[in-house]
Design a protein around this nucleic acid. Structure first.
Length: 554
RNA sequence: GCGCCCGUAGCUCAGCGGAUAGAGCAGGGGACUUCUAAUCCCAAGGCCGCAGGUUCGAAUCCUGCCGGGCGCACCA
């Protein structure tokens, strides 16, 4: 019996109790959940339903709990129900009902943990979105890891997801990039407002190799060649380093396309129709203050140029017109000032900013080596890049480290910690379970132990305390995935995996899985192998959601 | 000045209204003729920043303070 099934049983018991007492069933919630108490004396699961309902129907909680307990006690698979404290229901499951989960998980395989809570939703996730003027820096990498994990979580919860990278290859930043390349090619120092770092010289050299005639062109024409070729090279490099990080996007969206297709005009028209556009001082303004922004925003400057914000508006509209119900933006903390205008912009289009546009803010990341923050990249100069991070700790550790913390908290990634092969390195701790379970599987095959037929599985044999705890941890996985997706918090999955890993190691330490020496194979050995394999399934599924490998050996 | 985020064990952090607030590290004490000790066990460690409020119940929700980080463009 899973926690979800148990919660259903609690709710149907409540319906029966309400009927018997002649209470108003509309006071009952649509769904309820059971908790997993920390204290084992409080049972396998606990329900607070009686406490929640007592006020609404005017029945003392313990009285309600007593009725619920009696009703629930008759449910098959439930061993006992006790009333505790002000009206908690402490529930214990039969070992057989609990143990059966091991088989269900193995049979479900990669599907275990998924759900349908977000079925029917079409969600756009935009992240990284760095302009191709340099390598991806460490702030963007946080979202590469978290955004990618989130896309996997949302898909596992049934949503249709489109991941997207938005970039600009025409703005003034790109001009600075092109001027920097030109300067490097001519052996001159980088322009005052340009980009430094060794990669500029590398890219300039690659452009010269590809287009040798650039050396003979006048500066203006040469700069244009450096712009076009340099951006292409830089962007290929960004894509390939992200791909090496396990992140690929469904769509790479170029701001230029918005201009070429007249989408800014289109967006302006739509905003005008909604009545939120003004012309003042020769510029075109969007009255975002109509919806709580602290100042109005310019769409088209008095010199006739569009603002970047105008493109943001067009891009948002484009996403909506492509059928996305919800546009999720992932930004660094240094961009949190955009939230107000973006929300207001959605409202100006007539959308509900609570529903159609969602902005996630991630606090900053730094890499720490020997107790001091790493500030410079060898190659990029002023910033630490994705490559620096991967070189320092590897892809698995990097993705795990970035996904393990709430995006609300700033993180320092300590190189020494994340490359250590021990308990205090969380990614090793979890991956070690993947390797250990695989190893047990290999050894089992060698001594002729197999799980055997599904019908022959004896779940009631999994009655050891550590087996019970492991089963309860395994049962939590679907709820963890659902919560992580709903709250956009992939770190919940990582924390869960660490907890599950602890439960497995303790099981492994206390419960011998394989027969020793010439010991005969028993049903208990087989039942434990089911449990071992179920754990491997969940660890692998969970790590996959984070984009981290589940090794067979370490 | 205004806005956002944070404040939980010595350190790094979990904890989407529930019972005695958890985990890792550091420091103390144990378990390797192993199914991979990359592990496990025991002990110790707390005005959950402060003050009010809502609630049967608050680390969690609300208000106000204090402290730290970040941001407030006809830049991109």
């Amino acid at each position: 019996m899973t926690p979800a099934e148990l919660a259903e049983a609690v709710l149907s018991a409540a319906h029966a109790v309400f009927d018997a007492r002649g209470l108003d069933r509309s006071a009952l919630p649509e769904r309820t959940a059971v908790e997993r108490p920390r204290n084992p004396e409080h049972g396998d699961y606990a329900s607070t339903l009686a406490l929640q309902l007592s006020k609404r129907v005017g029945v003392p909680p313990r009285e309600l709990a007593a009725d619920l307990s009696e009703q629930l006690g008759r449910t098959p698979g439930i061993k006992s129900v006790e009333i505790a404290g002000p009206g908690f229901l402490n529930i214990r499951l039969d070992a057989a009902a609990a143990g059966l989960l091991a088989r269900s998980i193995v049979e479900a395989g990669p599907a275990y943990g998924g759900g349908t809570a977000l079925a029917g939703q079409k969600i756009n996730l935009e992240f990284v979105s760095a302009n191709p003027t340099g390598p991806v820096h460490i702030g963007g990498v946080r979202w590469a890891a978290v955004g990618d994990a989130l896309s996997r979580l949302l898909r596992a919860s049934g949503a249709e997801v489109g991941t997207e990278y938005y970039f600009n290859d025409a703005g003034s930043q790109i001009d600075r990039f092109a001027r920097s390349l030109l300067a490097a090619a001519k052996g001159e120092p980088a322009p005052e407002d340009g980009y430094g770092g060794a990669y500029i010289a590398e890219i300039a050299e690659q452009v010269r190799a590809k287009r040798p005639e650039v050396a003979t062109l006048p500066d203006e024409a040469a700069q244009e060649v450096f712009r076009v070729e340099g951006v292409a090279l830089m962007f290929d490099e960004i894509k390939s380093s992200l791909r090496g990080f396990g992140v690929d996007f469904d769509t790479y969206f170029n701001e230029k396309d918005l201009h070429d297709r007249g989408e800014l005009e289109h967006a302006l028209t739509r905003l005008r129709e909604q009545g939120h556009v003004d012309e003042r001082d020769g510029a075109v303004w969007l009255r975002t203050t109509d919806f709580g922004d602290d100042k109005d925003r310019v769409l088209r400057k008095s010199n006739g140029e569009w603002t970047y914000f105008a493109a943001d508006c067009a891009y948002y509209l484009d996403k909506r017109e492509r059928g996305f119900d919800r546009a999720v933006y992932m930004l660094g903390a240094d961009h949190h000032g955009y939230v107000g205008r973006m929300k207001a912009m959605a409202a100006c289009f007539g959308d509900d900013p609570q529903v159609h546009l969602e902005i996630l803010i991630g606090q900053l990341v730094s890499l720490v080596r020997d107790g001091a923050p790493v500030r410079m990249s060898k190659r990029a100069g002023t910033v630490v890049t994705l490559e620096d991070l991967v070189d320092a700790i590897g892809v698995d550790a990097a993705r795990y480290a970035l996904a393990r913390y709430s995006s609300d908290s700033p993180i320092d990634i300590d190189v020494e910690l994340w490359t250590r092969a021990s308990r205090d390195n969380p990614v090793y701790y979890v991956q070690y379970v993947a390797a250990r379970t695989a190893s047990v599987g290999r050894n089992a095959a060698e001594v002729g132990l197999t799980r055997g037929d599904a019908e022959a599985f004896r779940p009631e044999l999994l009655a050891h305390e550590k087996e019970n705890e492991l089963l309860k941890a395994l049962a939590e996985f679907p709820a963890t995935v659902a919560a992580a997706a709903e709250l956009r918090e992939p770190h919940r999955v990582a924390r869960y995996l660490e907890e599950l890993s602890g439960a497995y190691h303790r099981f492994y330490d206390n419960c011998r899985i394989l027969p020793r020496g010439d010991e005969e194979v028993t049903d208990l050995h087989r039942a434990r192998l089911w449990l071992n394999d179920a754990t491997r399934t969940v660890i692998a599924n969970g790590l996959h959601l984070l984009g981290v490998s589940a090794p067979e050996r370490m």
